[in-house]
Write a protein that binds this DNA or RNA. Structure first.
Lengths: 206, 206
DNA sequence: TTGAATTGACTCGTGGGTAAGTTACTACAA
DNA sequence: TTGTAGTAACTTACCCACGAGTCAATTCAA
């Protein structure tokens, strides 16, 4: 019979489509609540499917997260490499990187949140993915900070190290603030960053 | 018999002493791993006692955490109020606050980590405790940032808000970096902060 | 002998993960 | 045009480990 009480069996959705749909839902939820606070049953319910289907397609909760993380780190690394290749230096490079990240994250801030999830699992695959963009960001931060501090006469390695950590957090704080203010469009946010940096940073010596 | 296979019964440790010992161990573990990733059995094992004793003295896992948090927020709020009353303004106040926090955290950085645990439970008591020092820190950040930005000609409320978030993260990044470098003594860290601020901040207009 | 300190051995809910079956689309023979 | 395998999509109902929390006892000090 064609009653609405259908209990199991295919719904005619191809695997690729279903995977994409699940990844979309999972990315959003992982981003909102973090990996540890999310259950696979939550994702299944929000996606309107059952838990075993997720295990059939992704193997494990970690596997599902890794697929989200793969997309997230891919987007971020791609954008960071792009802006790094623009040839800007100093504050201009920092602003260009922020600008690019704002643009690429528009409408899908879960990418940033998943890539920065403090409760992410420690599987080798996840570690590799996380390393691919974190070390890139941190290297850029370290180099940029070393140049900037040298201008101010500071070159102690520990000073540079601490300041790089500070800068990474400044970057993250600006992106986090933007994630918390969905009404602010990327261009507006880029302008804000330029304004703030201009107001507080010592102008580079000639 | 007086064999070593004693299975239960008092060990002659007074409640107050045992509570202090448990709180010491719990603070350390909560600080290292975070509330969510810590099990009560872990704390019991490290303290060399059994799980029911913890429940007898603290009621619940949340209760145990709240006692740790109470000490942590007490120490931090006390120190923040002390430096806030020193009458410093601008960067000098920031440095004085950092200096005080480094001094008061020496040898017990778990205080900072517990007070900034992103996985802390959302019980009313915990929320109250957290609010008591977070809002204080954020108010100070907001006020200080407003003054600083006004000097640079920026007074948009959203700009001030974003910059206050950035500054809070700079503060946290410096403390976190210090927590990750146990060999650095507080005075050395204060000097480092002064050096870094001097190198990057625009000098205040007269 | 009373009460405080202390524990082994439980219960119970939650969440990751699985076994085994059900439905529907597709290809192809008659 | 119809059966009819075979396979891919999909679910119900379960198992099991782990961690929060409890009970009923046991030991010792005053």
């Amino acid at each position: 019979m064609t009653s609405s009480a259908r209990r199991s069996g295919t719904k005619g959705v191809a695997r690729a489509d279903r995977e994409a749909q699940i990844l979309d839902v999972a990315g959003r939820i992982f981003g909102e609540r973090g990996f540890a606070a999310t259950s696979v049953a939550d994702v299944a319910r929000e996606a309107g499917i059952s838990k075993p289907l997720i295990y059939h397609y992704f193997g494990s909760k970690e596997g599902l997260f890794e697929r989200c993380l793969s997309e997230a780190s891919g987007v971020l690394v791609g954008e960071i490499e792009r802006t790094a290749g623009l040839g800007e230096v100093g504050l201009a490079r920092a602003l260009a990187t922020l600008d690019g990240v704002f643009a690429v994250l528009a409408g899908r801030t879960w990418i940033w949140q998943v890539a920065n999830d403090p409760t992410a699992p420690a599987t080798p695959a996840a570690a590799t993915l996380l390393g691919s963009y974190r070390t890139r960001l941190e290297t850029l931060a370290h180099d940029g900070v070393r140049e900037l501090l040298a201008l101010g006469g500071v070159d102690d390695p520990l000073d540079v190290d601490a300041m790089a950590a500070v800068w990474s957090n400044v970057f993250a704080a600006l992106v986090d603030w933007w994630c918390a203010h969905p009404d602010v469009v990327p261009d507006e946010m880029s302008a804000r960053c330029a304004r703030l940096f201009g107001a507080v940073f010592r102008p580079a010596a000639p």
